[in-house]
């Protein structure tokens, strides 16, 4: 069990980000804006294709459910990763690293805290988008029930370890590499077969994609929305991969911090 001191320090870092977010309407709006716009846009796109293809209402519902579910869940992954990297960049922009990392805050506690922050940011973005889909398309992602939670947490996990790895790169390369925080997850999307089945990919991309938990989550999502079947195997595979990558992500970020302490870049970060 985590000692009281650790919890207090994790809460302190979370509180720091809560203060920033809770008083900044533009930041909150930005977090909610993109998931909602994407959901509305992709909903109409799927309606358009289903209607032009002469699909009946049942097929249209399946197409909508599959595509909108994928859009929302992919956004969870993306927002979690970006939220985590931004939590680090916030400290760089505020030139606060020199105070934070000479306090008793352990790197592991800081990682836990920014994972929590990124989860909150992802939820703030995803919940309005999910609710908006109900009046727009009569689609409720919550109808998936328990499997939704499993899809959700697997993608959150993937967002976390990606965020840890990207943050490690930012620690190493400096804030000049900030665009990595925005680009990296998008680069993985084609491999993860978010909006299509993996068999449309070239063989080498399918093989690479198997290494990403998201591919298994989205296969699981399609099995549920298209065939009404929940296949636990997909979730276990995704979970196992996530565990391995989380350990690697935390170790790499820990190494990056130590390297920054060796080269003296920790106190200069942001300058």
């Amino acid at each position: 069990m985590m000692p009281q001191g650790s919890l207090s320090r994790i809460y302190a870092v979370w509180l720091r980000h809560f203060y920033i977010l809770s008083r900044s309407a533009p930041r909150l709006l930005e977090i909610m804006y993109w998931p909602s716009v994407q959901m509305v846009l992709w909903g109409f796109v799927s309606r358009f294709f289903a209607a032009r293809g002469g699909a009946d209402m049942a097929t249209l519902d399946v197409a909508l459910g599959t595509l909108l579910g994928a859009v929302m869940l992919w956004d969870i992954l993306f927002r979690t990763q970006v939220g985590l990297s931004i939590a680090y960049l916030e400290e760089i922009w505020a030139r606060n690293m020199g105070h934070l990392f000479v306090s008793p805050l352990r790197p592991g506690e800081w990682m836990c805290a920014i994972m929590l922050v990124s989860l909150c940011r992802a939820l703030v973005g995803a919940i309005p988008a999910a609710l908006l889909a109900v009046p727009f398309y009569g689609f409720s992602v919550f109808d998936m029930g328990l499997p939704l939670l499993l899809f959700f947490f697997n993608l959150v996990f993937m967002g976390w370890w990606l965020g840890l790895l990207i943050t490690a790169m930012l620690v190493k390369a400096g804030p000049g590499a900030e665009s990595l925080a925005w680009m990296t997850t998008f680069a993985l999307a084609p491999f993860c077969a978010v909006y299509y089945t993996p068999d449309v990919l070239p063989l080498w991309m399918q093989q690479v994609g198997q290494a990403f938990p998201a591919l298994h989550v989205f296969e699981g999502l399609r099995a549920l929305t298209m065939r009404g079947e929940f296949i636990p195997h997909y979730m276990w595979t995704a979970f196992g991969l996530n565990l391995v990558y989380m350990a690697i992500g935390a170790a790499v970020l820990g190494w990056a911090f130590n390297d920054a302490r060796r080269h003296g870049t920790l106190l200069q970060a942001g300058e």
């Binding site: 509180l15 203060y19 920033i20 690293m97 105070h99 000479v102 306090s103 008793p104």
Partner: peptide
């Protein structure tokens, strides 16, 4: 530690900064 060359988060109030660092130091 204190240094004019290492900032505290400027978007937070003084009280919020003290709350955060107070919790970090238990």
């Amino acid at each position: 530690f204190s240094s004019p060359y290492v900032d505290l988060p400027k978007k937070l109030t003084v009280r919020e900064n003290l709350r955060i660092y107070g919790r970090l130091y238990g």
